[in-house]
C-alpha cells in the first residue's frame, strides 16, 4: 500500500520562469481514488510529474511511501507510480500491440509467467486481446490511447496516474476507462486522474482536488467540490460543475454530482418529482 505526500512543493520552470507549483501540500492515502481538476496551466500535470520524479521540486519535497522521491531515479519510482501520458503517439514504438504492452513491465523487472500474465490481463482489461499481434499504428486513436493505458496497467504499480484518460474517447471508450479505474480501485491500487471531464470525475473519484495557479484551492468529496458552495472557486479556475449538480441546485436538492444521485434524489421526493408537467 503506497501513500503519496507533497510537502510545500514549489516548481519554477527554467524556461520562462513560470511558477507552476506554488507551495502544494497534500497527502493521498493508499487505495484512494482521487481526481485532480483545474484550468489549463493550473499545475496539474506538473504536480503528477513530480510523483514519479520526471520533474524535481524547486523547493519542498515529495514522499512516496515515506521515501523522499529526490533520492530515487525515475526508473526506480516507475515501479511504484505508473503514469499514463495524454498523447499515446508520443510513446508507441513497438511493432506489435503485445510488444508495446510488454515494454513497461519488462523495464520494472517482470519476466516469464508473471510478465505474460500481466500483459494478458492488461490486454483483456483494455479490450485489446484480439489485437495483440496488430501494429499499434493500425489501431484508431481511441484504441491507441487504451494501448498506452494497458502498457502502464501491466506494470502492476500500486499507484496509477492517468493524465486526461477520456480525451478523444467515444462513449464506449469512456465506459472502459471507468471500468478500469473501478477495477484498479477494487484491487487496492491508488488512482489519481487528471481530467477536464467533470461528469467522468464525479462518477469515478471519491475525492476531488481543485488547483488554480499552482495552488490547491479546494479538496473534498465530489458532492463538496461540485456543490453550490464551491461554485465560486470552480468558476475562478474555469471549471463548470457537472450537469446533475447544476440541475439539482435549480431543483433545490441537496448537493449532488452524479446522474445516479440526481435520480435518487428525485425519487426521494424533490419538489414536483413524480408529478406530470401541466
Amino acid at each position: 500500500m503506497t501513500e503519496l505526500v507533497a510537502e510545500e512543493l514549489v516548481h519554477v520552470y527554467r524556461e520562462g520562469g513560470v511558477r507552476a507549483l506554488d507551495g502544494v501540500s497534500l497527502r493521498i492515502g493508499a487505495g484512494e481514488r482521487v481526481a485532480l481538476i483545474g484550468q489549463n496551466g493550473s499545475g496539474k500535470t506538473t504536480l503528477v510529474r513530480h510523483l514519479n520524479g520526471l520533474l524535481r521540486p524547486t523547493s519542498g519535497r515529495v514522499l512516496v511511501d515515506g521515501a523522499d522521491a529526490a533520492t530515487l531515479t525515475v526508473a526506480q519510482l516507475a515501479r511504484t507510480v505508473g503514469l499514463v501520458f495524454q498523447d499515446p503517439d508520443r510513446q508507441i514504438f513497438a511493432p506489435s500491440v503485445r510488444d508495446e504492452v510488454e515494454f513497461g513491465p519488462r523495464n520494472v523487472g517482470l519476466a516469464g509467467a508473471e510478465l505474460r500474465a500481466a500483459v494478458a490481463n492488461a490486454l483483456a482489461a483494455t479490450g485489446l486481446a484480439e489485437a495483440a499481434s496488430v501494429n499499434p499504428y493500425d489501431l484508431g486513436g481511441s484504441r491507441r490511447k487504451l494501448l498506452a493505458l494497458a502498457g502502464v496497467l501491466a506494470m502492476r504499480t500500486p499507484v496509477l496516474v492517468l493524465d486526461e484518460p477520456t480525451t478523444g474517447q467515444d462513449a464506449r471508450g469512456v465506459e472502459r476507462v471507468r471500468a478500469l479505474i473501478d477495477e484498479a480501485h477494487r484491487s487496492g491500487r491508488t488512482v489519481l486522474t487528471v481530467s477536464h471531464d467533470m461528469r467522468f470525475v464525479a462518477e469515478t473519484a471519491d475525492r476531488v482536488i481543485v488547483m488554480r495557479q499552482g495552488r490547491v484551492v479546494l479538496d473534498g468529496t465530489p458532492a463538496e467540490a461540485f456543490g453550490p458552495d464551491a461554485w465560486e472557486v470552480l468558476r475562478s479556475t474555469h471549471v463548470e460543475p457537472p450537469l446533475p449538480a447544476r440541475v439539482g441546485h435549480r431543483l433545490g436538492l441537496a448537493s449532488i454530482a452524479t446522474d445516479a444521485s440526481l435520480l435518487d434524489a428525485l425519487r426521494e421526493g424533490a419538489p414536483g418529482a413524480g408529478e406530470r408537467p401541466q
Binding site: L54, A75, D87, Q91, F103
Partner: peptide, 13 residues
Amino acid sequence: QITAAQRARGLDT
C-alpha cells in the same frame, strides 16, 4: 516528451 513518457514506463536513461 517521448523521453519523459518512456522513463515513466521504467526506461532507465
